[in-house]
């Protein structure tokens, strides 16, 4: 037992030292947005990927709002890789950040990162994507993807009709948004037996991947009537494949997000519809919640659904990319 103790003591000292560094770096101050050393408190904005303009808007809006509120804010890009995300959180904890505005890569896999930050006393506020836990983040501000895609599904049936063939491009399979959107859409469309889904494939929310996937699907199913995409980046990739195949006028494209290029193509009649999420609203709300938390408030709803609005040729005049026209 003596030998065991002798071997474990250095390990315990190392772990204790590491924890001490994390704790000592958090020189928090109450209420004035300043740290004990006089510097501004720091907010980390951790984003699943910046390889998509929608997430760039989310990240930059969160960062800018945090700065407006008096914080130093920095963006961390996880590049859709949970390992990168975990490394970011290790750095954030070790560096003693004061709050995290977080867009996770994985609903289950990201929980441990949030818990790690919470254990170090760093509050985490999720944006756009949820984690499958209600006792880790302070609050989660999320698009109501399911309701948005119920509305989109109803419009899909109006536009495509009650008979036809279509393709669905899914997002990241580990993300709840992927399935909430798909389930909302299918809760409507599956009630019409004449509408047949001939292919359903993930394109990882990625435009280039969607282009490849759509090109392959068109080889096997050249006569489809429509494609439903789980986000606008994939809608743009699918549309690009359809243009290249000379089928852009034949196949109706539906997206989800409210990205500026898709809103523009809806106005031009080239894409049929999208669900407008409000990334600026979510990012601003998360930054403001973090500010209120750091000023002592503790009563936050765990989940805050943000309504999604349908953008069609009838309503497109009310919208610009990423929000309502008046925003």
């Amino acid at each position: 037992m003596k030998a065991l103790s002798g071997n474990l003591i250095p390990l315990a000292l190392v772990l204790g030292f590491a924890a001490g560094i994390a704790g000592c770096n958090r020189q928090t101050a109450e209420g004035d947005g300043r740290r004990a050393d006089g510097g501004a408190q720091r907010v980390a904005v951790v984003i699943s990927t910046l390889n998509n303009p929608w997430f760039v808007v989310l990240a930059e809006t969160a960062r800018d709002r945090a700065r407006e509120l008096g914080y130093d804010a920095m963006i961390f890009d996880s590049q859709n890789d949970p390992a990168n995300e975990a490394a970011h959180f290790e750095n954030i904890v070790a560096s003693g950040y004061d709050a995290v505005l977080f867009n996770p890569t994985d609903a289950d896999g990201s929980i441990a990162n949030v818990r790690r930050a919470a254990a170090a006393g760093i509050p985490v506020f999720c944006m756009d994507r949820e984690i499958n836990a209600t006792d880790a983040a302070v609050s989660q501000i999320l698009s109501d993807n399911y309701a948005g895609c119920v509305a989109l599904g109803q419009y899909f049936v109006e536009e495509v009709g009650e008979e036809g063939t279509y393709v669905e491009l899914l997002g990241l399979v580990g993300d709840n948004n992927t399935w909430n959107r798909s389930q909302g859409f299918h809760s409507v469309v599956d009630r019409f037996p004449g509408l047949k889904m001939v292919a359903q494939q993930s394109a990882d929310f990625d435009r280039a991947r969607a282009l490849e996937v759509m090109e392959a699907i068109l080889q096997a199913h050249p006569d489809i009537d429509a494609v439903f995409c789980g986000n606008d980046a994939m809608a743009m990739g699918a549309y690009q494949a359809l243009v290249a195949a000379g089928k852009a006028d034949q196949v109706k494209v539906f997206g989800f997000d409210g990205a500026d290029d898709v809103v523009q193509l809806i106005a031009e009649g080239k894409i049929v519809a999208t669900g407008m999420q409000f990334p600026k609203v979510m990012a601003q709300t998360a930054a403001e919640y973090a500010d209120r938390y750091l000023n002592g408030e503790r009563d936050f709803p765990q989940k805050v659904p943000v309504a999604v609005e349908l953008v069609t040729r009838e309503t497109v005049d009310q919208f610009v990319g990423y929000g309502r026209r008046e925003e």
């Binding site: 209600t134 399911y146 309701a147 119920v150 709840n176 909430n180 389930q183 809760s187 409507v188």
Partner: peptide
């Protein structure tokens, strides 16, 4: 029937009670 009128209109269910929104 589509949508969430009864789930959300009854006032008896709270999304925060569900770890997974699915």
């Amino acid at each position: 029937l589509f949508g969430n009128a009864v789930r959300d209109g009854s006032g008896l269910l709270d999304v925060s009670d569900f770890p997974n929104s699915q």
